[in-house]
Design a protein around this nucleic acid. Structure first.
Length: 682
DNA sequence: TTTAGGG
DNA sequence: CCCTAAA
């Protein structure tokens, strides 16, 4: 069974780029929308919230709420596959929007695949979570916006202009492997960490490839996107209209869709609801959950991804079936992450260096970025946290999973640790500040002498009783459960502390919830609840998981809930043209027919979308041109919109007792209506 | 599943 | 775009 095959990915770390003082999101949100509902989390926000919380706790005097505005930043995940031979190291974050994205990513080592077709990936690196600027007023935390975009390996090689790039393997690799790169991600577990990794197809190719994952800012502004992502935002070609019968069909080029089509299982003949749409609902649930209420200030975040679905789920029927299972977590979760799992352990933090740091220490431990602070004259303390490291995590996904789903999974795993299993520690001159009630002043965080001796760290907030993170195939022996960690410090600053952290284990939901038939988002849910036999095959847990059962509620993050909104895809003039044309003929109450007639090939346009677009078109047509935004729609089209709208709203009433809507459409009907009107006047 | 509307 | 009540 193909679905049984999996791809395992293990990451020791994940590095999130420094968040630039990004420009505000071009996407303005109405005040009304700026509510909790709209708050969608991103890794950054979680960190920000943590930092803010930290500050709140350690600060005695609160400051004003003066907010200088929300800087929206978005993140995307990217994957880089490269040929080790060539050692091509793309400057991953250079050229990123606004140019201030952090250094890079973490590099992993070697891809591999085991005998039973389970490609495994293990990224052994440091991770860091971007840059956070904090004032000693949590209200001033930067807010971020997550906009996760994905790209397929097949896309193109013009990645240079992408913010989030998926760098495909060099040509020689692909040729020698004679297979698609997307199937080429194989990482090999770093020696001594786990032995569930086996050799791979990559080995067969005689190549060792590197896979990198990174977090990169992504643009929110669709306009900028057009420029930044030319391959994804091609202007809709006018000549892509093809007459079919009386209607117009559009042949859309969409990377995501194309990717799906490659799989030959895309059922696009009908309008359907993409699984990713449902996902968003889950994120809302998450956001409204108790967990998120601890960070009410950070609600302006939004996730947005163009997902690459697992082909299976593209089946309309399947998709719909899942979609309707609103109350079935089981189904919902399986939708995306069936057979996907991730295991996270704190792994003692990678001994590898943060890639942005120039040198490594003697033990290969590179000095990581540090947090800095600056005390201003008005008794405010500004913190600049350059990066955070994230503990090691393992991920397993089916071989058939898309790159997009991999990215999602990684993101979820990252979010899981950051959001649920971690808390922030503060170290001053190597000493962890344990007393949360002390003020910054009392702690010495307001003295400029300590400017450079401050650091933050992420650490598991649950000190589980020596959980075993035995990752690997069932036959492999478990790793030691020794809580003792490598000498490397999990702190931001290098070599400052040697804190022994109890390991903890989190599991990504994915397959873990496969058999979980009652996992409503109850706050009582525990990680243990999500452990299923299936997951045990991958993760061996201690006989007694009681420790897990007492994990605080705040940690019970359902990473599976972490899905984002569909990417915004403004209608092009050509699309509007097609829509107007179809509506003129079919009327405003037959969106499915409109979809079929004019957008049958545009899988990303559902009939609901078309209906919505029509709604906005009507509105647009009624307002003054000065008030319109976005790509201007020719007045001619807007006139037709008004005409059709006027006609059909009138005709629908008439149609009741009268003849069925025959052929003709609005234009003809309008004429007939005029005639009728005239005759009635006579 | 579609439609119709509110958010 | 999302969410959903209704049909």
């Amino acid at each position: 069974m193909v679905l049984k095959r999996r791809v395992n990915y293990g990451f020791t770390g994940f590095q999130v780029p420094v968040i630039p003082r990004a420009p505000r999101s071009a996407r303005r949100r109405s005040p009304l929308k700026n509510s909790v509902e709209d708050g969608e989390a991103c890794a950054f926000e979680i960190l920000a919230s943590l930092a803010g919380k930290l500050l709140q706790e350690s600060e005695s005097s609160a400051c004003s709420n003066a907010s200088e505005g929300n800087h929206h930043c978005s993140f995307s995940q990217g994957i880089i596959v490269q040929d080790r031979k060539n050692e091509v190291k793309p400057s991953i974050t250079e050229g990123v929007h606004q140019g201030s994205c952090t250094e890079s990513i973490f590099t992993t080592n070697v891809a591999s695949k085991n005998n039973d077709q389970k490609p495994l990936l293990h990224a052994k690196t440091d991770c860091s979570l971007g840059h956070i600027s904090v004032n000693n007023n949590s209200d001033n935390l930067e807010k971020a916006k997550a906009n996760v975009k994905t790209e397929t390996v097949e896309s193109d090689n013009k990645y240079g202009s992408y913010t989030n790039r998926l760098v495909k393997a060099p040509e020689n690799f692909r040729k020698s492997c004679n297979r698609k790169v997307k199937k080429g991600f194989r990482l090999e577990q770093e020696a001594g960490v786990s032995n569930y990794h086996r050799s791979t197809s990559a080995d067969k190719c005689g190549l060792k490839d590197r896979l990198e994952l990174y977090m990169s800012p992504a643009l929110v502004d669709s306009k900028v996107n057009v420029k930044k992502y030319p391959l994804h935002r091609k202007p809709f070609p006018t000549d892509s209209f093809t007459k079919r019968g009386n209607g117009i069909k559009l042949d859309f080029r969409d990377d995501d869709e194309n990717f799906i089509r490659y799989t030959k299982v895309c059922a696009k003949s009908k309008a359907f609801r993409s699984p990713r749409r449902i996902a968003h609902r889950r994120i809302k649930n998450l956001l409204s959950s108790k967990y998120w209420k601890v960070a009410p200030k950070l609600k302006d975040c939004e996730l947005s991804r163009s997902d690459l679905e697992v082909p299976l789920y593209r089946k309309r029927k399947t998709s719909h079936g899942f979609d309707r299972s609103h109350h079935s977590n089981v189904v919902k979760r399986r939708r995306f992450f069936d057979r996907v799992s991730a295991v996270i352990s704190d792994g003692g933090f990678s001994s590898e260096s943060v890639s942005n740091s120039p040198e490594k220490g003697a033990n290969g431990h590179k000095p990581s970025s540090s947090a800095k602070m600056h005390v201003t004259e008005d008794s405010h303390v500004k913190f600049s946290i350059k990066s955070f490291r994230i503990p090691e995590l393992y991920i397993e996904v089916p071989e058939t999973a898309t790159v997009g789903s991999l990215k999602r999974t990684v993101m979820e795993a990252v979010m899981g640790i950051i959001g649920g299993g971690m808390h922030v520690g503060v170290l001053l001159q190597g000493e962890e500040i344990g007393d949360d009630n002390r003020t910054l002043e009392q702690t010495g965080l307001s003295c400029n002498e300590n400017l450079d001796s401050l650091s933050f760290m992420l650490e598991p907030s649950s000190l589980l009783a020596s959980p075993i993170s035995c990752v690997g195939d069932p036959s492999s022996q478990c790793e030691t459960s020794e809580p003792i960690r490598s000498p490397e410090t999990p702190a931001l600053d290098s070599g400052i502390t040697d804190i022994i952290r109890d390991s903890y284990l989190l599991t990504n939901q994915g397959n873990l919830v496969e058999n979980n038939h009652d996992s409503t988002s109850s706050p009582i849910d525990t990680i243990v609840d999500e452990i299923t036999p299936d997951s045990r095959a991958i993760v061996a847990l201690p006989a007694s998981n009681e420790a897990l059962a007492v994990v605080p509620v705040s940690q019970k993050i359902k990473r599976s809930e972490f899905v984002q909104r569909r990417t915004r895809r403004p209608f092009s003039v050509s699309e509007v043209e097609a829509l107007v044309h179809a509506v003129e003929e079919l009327g405003t109450g037959r969106w499915r027919d409109v979809k079929l007639r004019a957008f049958d090939n545009a899988d990303h346009r559902t009939y609901v979308d078309l209906k919505d677009k029509w709604k906005t078109l009507v509105h647009t047509a009624k307002i003054s041109p000065q008030q319109r935004r976005g790509e201007p729609v020719p007045q001619e089209l807007l006139d037709r919109v008004l005409g059709a709208h006027a006609y059909w709203s009138q005709h629908q009433i008439k149609q009741h007792g009268k003849h069925q809507c025959g052929t003709g459409g609005a234009l003809k009907m309008i004429t007939e209506a005029s005639v009728e009107r005239m005759s009635s006047q006579v």
